[in-house]
């Protein structure tokens, strides 16, 4: 997994199968950076996620709560149809926007 920081935006790029086992690693690595206090926007890049279950929803939800508390935002891009369906099923689509690509995700304030 790679995390890129661009200004006040952080892009989390999980790779492979996003399950409960992997979720704890993502959470730890992401929160270590968020808690430094400079990030205002968390972007999930799902381009290389081949599988996701509801643990992925938990990870997004957790980061959303964290960012909401500091008036920041969370969004995503690169999600395949299955991931989009899962996000919709959980009601998370009311809280986060899924953009078609990284550029769009970075553009929106």
């Amino acid at each position: 997994m790679r995390i890129d920081v661009m200004g006040d935006a952080m892009i989390i790029r999980p790779k492979g199968e996003l399950d409960h086992h992997y979720a704890s690693e993502i959470r730890e690595k992401a929160d270590r950076i968020i808690l430094k206090g400079e990030i205002r926007k968390v972007i999930f890049d799902f381009t290389n996620v081949l599988f996701m279950d509801s643990s992925g929803i938990g990870v997004i939800m957790g980061r959303y709560r964290l960012m909401e508390a500091i008036k920041g935002s969370v969004c995503a891009f690169g999600a395949n149809q299955r991931i989009k369906d899962l996000i919709k099923m959980s009601g998370l689509s009311r809280l986060i926007t899924i953009y078609p690509n990284q550029q769009k995700a970075l553009e929106v304030k």
């Binding site: 279950d53 509801s54 938990g58 990870v59 957790g62 899962l86 099923m89």
Partner: peptide
């Protein structure tokens, strides 16, 4: 606390 979304059974049902 573990950020379980509570969606497990709903996903299985779906």
């Amino acid at each position: 606390d573990e950020e379980r979304s509570g969606m497990g059974f709903t996903v299985m049902e779906t």
